[in-house]
Computed example of a mutant assay.
Amino acid sequence: MTSENKNMEHEMPKPNPDLKTLSPLIGTWKVSGETHGEITYEWMEGGFFIIQKIELESHGQIIKGIEIIGHEQDFQSEPSKEIKSRYFDNSGNTFSYVYERKGDQLTIWFGEKGSPAYCSAKFSEDGNTLSGAWIYPGGGGYTYTASKIDK
């Protein structure tokens, strides 16, 4: 093994810096509107992923779930260009999303980027409120407001 290979072997990977664009989400949020409850975002140790925990009520149904947000990376391959996530809930649902933040705008696409099902939300100037709507094909969806209650 050459000394160059040895150095590469011991080099620790670093999180993709674009994941930091989602830092304003970190904390606990009180969600109000047609869907209401609490959502908490926290960094997973190492900084490669954000863990989202949800407890919401929507149309009389209690939804408890987790979502892992970050870059997908298969063994010995490069990380995905997009910030992706996988969501799991108490009804057995498993969904995939793509996250993108530009300025005060947060977009979350259901499945793949550009999907007709997506969330469009905007952070307030102080970053303590996130107002948005989930848009579904055929005219469905809902609006919400989330207020940060714990940073």
Rank of each mutant, 00 (worst) to 15 (best):
Y41L: 01
E67H: 01
E100Q: 14
G92R: 05
M12D: 10
F88E: 02
Y144C: 01
K53D: 11
Y97K: 08
I135S: 05
N90R: 02
Y41S: 02
E4R: 13
F75E: 12
G103Q: 03
S58W: 09
A146K: 02
E45P: 07
Y142G: 04
A133V: 03
V98D: 13
T21N: 10
W29I: 04
E4W: 12
I63P: 00
T94V: 14
D89F: 00
I83K: 00
S23L: 02
S124P: 12
Y144Q: 01
W109N: 09
G33M: 08
Q52R: 15
F110L: 14
S131G: 00
D89R: 03
T2I: 04
Q73D: 02
I83G: 03
E72M: 15
E34Y: 15
E112S: 12
H71Y: 07
P24I: 08
Q52W: 02
E100M: 13
K6Y: 10
E82L: 15
T2H: 07
P79C: 05
T94E: 14
P137C: 03
I26T: 03
S58E: 13
I135D: 01
P17E: 11
Q61P: 00
E125D: 15
I69W: 04
P137Y: 02
P15L: 08
E55Y: 00
S58H: 15
M8S: 13
T21I: 02
W134L: 11
G114M: 06
G127R: 09
L56W: 05
N128S: 10
P137K: 01
K6P: 00
Y97A: 11
I149S: 04
I50F: 03
M44L: 13
G47P: 10
E72Y: 14
E45A: 12
A117G: 13
L106M: 09
G103A: 06
L22V: 04
P17S: 11
V98Y: 12
I63T: 08
F123Y: 12
M12I: 08
N90Y: 04
S32K: 15
A133I: 03
Q52E: 15
I66K: 14
